[in-house]
Design a protein around this nucleic acid. Structure first.
Lengths: 207, 207
DNA sequence: CGACAACCGTAACTGTGGTTACGGATAAGT
DNA sequence: ACTTATCCGTAACCACAGTTACGGTTGTCG
């Protein structure tokens, strides 16, 4: 099988796995189910992925890739706008069905391997990008001076809070775009109140 | 069986279930395992709890009760101290093995019932208590005026961030007391910067 | 065209877990 | 003391999922 054909086939298989994972949970994701849904054979699944956790690992890797795309923000944009937009996109992704399904899978894995993998491909990819954004925000006078990692962590906490956990446990339905944008804007507003720039002329004007 | 004897027996059974849930995950929690660990019979388990999710439901109920105990703070204490202490206790509980195990169980339940139950017995119990604390903090000049629910939500987000999710997915080991106290103190400090009191004489002195 | 590797479909093997069933022991109530 | 309900211990039933195996088919390459 040619390389690109195989990649396309793998994408189909992983898409089917995502779909099953999303609406049946990790326990409801069976190799048999994936094979049937993707019209693939068990032999192929095991040859390509090794075992079930290998399949999940592949899903996590794909998720990491799309996460990096999500964080591609215009380099020259205003730092405030960039943060606002990045927050909304990040939230959309983290609260979306794929990320939720993967976190459920990691929660079900008692060994913790999947969780660590997910953190490596998620949080640890995001953190430096956010810190870089904070650096730009400081340089543009949007934020006051402070360790960038500290600002990044505060922003992230304000942005996501326990939303993702509630999504993962099923206590919260997937929020709409309006909610997400409002939340991102609120997080940024709070962050600027936490780390106000020394001179306020580039801040928000008074109403 | 006398009522209190039965309660004691039920407590033993639920403790055994917790222990199994904590170190084997939800998938590793089997009714057979619970029966053996608690030296109870299957018949008793099914007579008392109906089925496996019923057992989990009982665990959640017990967790709610102990959560309410956790939030019992001295009524007359300084609001700042009270918040600091409540934050540390809350974090200790939310990141502890019991809460983590229950959240994992909820994540594994595709129906979402357990998740909603857990939220009802957790978040929705905590929120009004915290809001009341915020009201006291405003009255004592520790915090500036603002809707209490808004302050409560911001504080909670700053306090917990994604710590609990990372615990649930296994990406984060259980933190020590020092970390938790520092985190609670930091959350409170940030909250007071977000909602500064009008007069600063009760605020933190400058270094 | 022929050989070969990869893939599909299906089924079998194996272990496990939720649930039910049953005989023997124990405590409660009359 | 007798009856009855409850509980323990164990095992059996059933379904399902992870994994392996195998014959038939398709696409690739010499």
């Amino acid at each position: 099988m040619k390389t690109d054909a195989r990649n396309a086939r793998a994408a189909q298989i992983e898409a089917a796995a995502y779909a099953l994972l999303a609406d049946k949970g990790y326990a409801g994701l069976s190799m048999n189910g994936v094979a049937k849904a993707a019209k693939a054979s068990m032999e192929t699944l095991y040859r390509w992925y090794g075992d079930k956790t290998g399949l999940i690992r592949a899903l996590i890797a794909g998720n990491t890739a799309s996460l990096e795309d999500t964080l591609e923000v215009a380099e020259d944009a205003d730092a405030g706008d960039a943060l606002d937009q990045a927050g909304a996109r990040l939230l959309t992704m983290l609260l979306g069905p794929a990320a939720v399904a993967l976190n459920r899978a990691a929660a079900a894995d008692a060994s913790g391997d999947l969780g660590r993998l997910l953190a490596e491909g998620g949080r640890e990819v995001v953190a430096p990008r956010i810190a870089a954004l904070m650096g730009r925000a400081q340089a543009q006078g949007v934020l006051g001076p402070a360790p960038e990692a500290e600002q990044a962590e505060a922003w992230f906490a304000l942005l996501i809070g326990d939303l993702q956990l509630r999504r993962v446990t099923g206590a919260l339905p997937q929020p709409g775009a309006a909610f997400i944008e409002a939340r991102s804007t609120q997080a940024l507003a709070r962050l600027t109140r936490l780390f106000p720039p020394a001179r306020l002329d580039s801040g928000a004007p008074m109403a």
